[in-house]
């Protein structure tokens, strides 16, 4: 554990609390892509299958994994059951099969072993790197977003960005080389946030509304 990773994980935690806060205070999931949230459940469940082996890394690790799985499923419940009428599927039109298929193929080509833990792990790494796309696509379509929604996406972007210095730090302080799968997917994932991040920094953080140029 190092500073960047801890800060990244805390940022990830913060993003979930921001999302829950947004849904509960506005009593609405307007502006949130249900498809992205489904993808996150798939990501967490496929990545944390090692929970079933009971080979613990640390209490921190296990508690966080359980929290990410639990909270992501809870968010689906909020969107599909509790605040269902506020969820508008007609603007959430990204075809996620175009993400799931290629990620499945990639995980069969690039993995650390053909086992029931490694292939889903690899799949989850690839899928996470593109899981935000339906959300960004929705933002693109509506052309604007509630400020709190942009804080949620920004916190997710910060989490991914912070994992990069974490890997650089680990490369120099540990003796295990580079995890090419996580690093390449992580860089791709972070790059997807660049456009959004630019508008977030230049508009939202200056007190303006998040609006895309027409």
């Amino acid at each position: 554990m190092n500073f960047f990773r801890l800060l990244g994980d805390l940022s990830h935690l913060a993003s979930i609390f921001i999302l829950l806060h947004k849904i509960q205070t506005t009593r609405s999931c307007r502006g949130i892509s249900f498809k992205t949230q489904v993808l996150y459940v798939v990501v967490f469940v496929t990545r944390y299958l090692d929970l079933l082996t009971f080979q613990f890394h640390s209490i921190y690790n296990t508690v966080m994994k359980l929290f990410f799985i639990g909270s992501s499923i809870y968010i689906l419940y909020l969107m599909r059951v509790r605040f269902r009428p506020t969820n508008d599927p007609s603007i959430d039109t990204f075809r996620i099969e175009y993400l799931l298929g290629p990620c499945a193929v990639l995980s069969l080509i690039f993995n650390y072993g053909y086992t029931w833990l490694e292939i889903p792990w690899s799949f989850s790494i690839f899928l996470e790197s593109v899981a935000i796309l339906p959300q960004l696509f929705m933002l693109q379509r509506t052309g604007e977003a509630e400020t709190i929604t942009t804080h949620y996406i920004a916190a997710l972007g910060a989490y991914r960005a912070l994992y990069i210095p974490n890997w650089i730090f680990r490369y120099f302080t540990e003796d295990n080389g580079v995890d090419a799968i996580a690093v390449v997917a992580g860089i791709v994932q972070t790059a997807l946030y660049v456009d959004f991040g630019w508008i977030y920094f230049t508009k939202v953080l200056q007190g303006q509304k998040f609006e895309l140029p027409a």
Partner: peptide, 10 residues
């Protein structure tokens, strides 16, 4: 090639 233990990350 070293196989890094990245599985300790979230």
């Amino acid at each position: 090639i070293a196989t890094p233990d990245v599985h300790d990350e979230l």
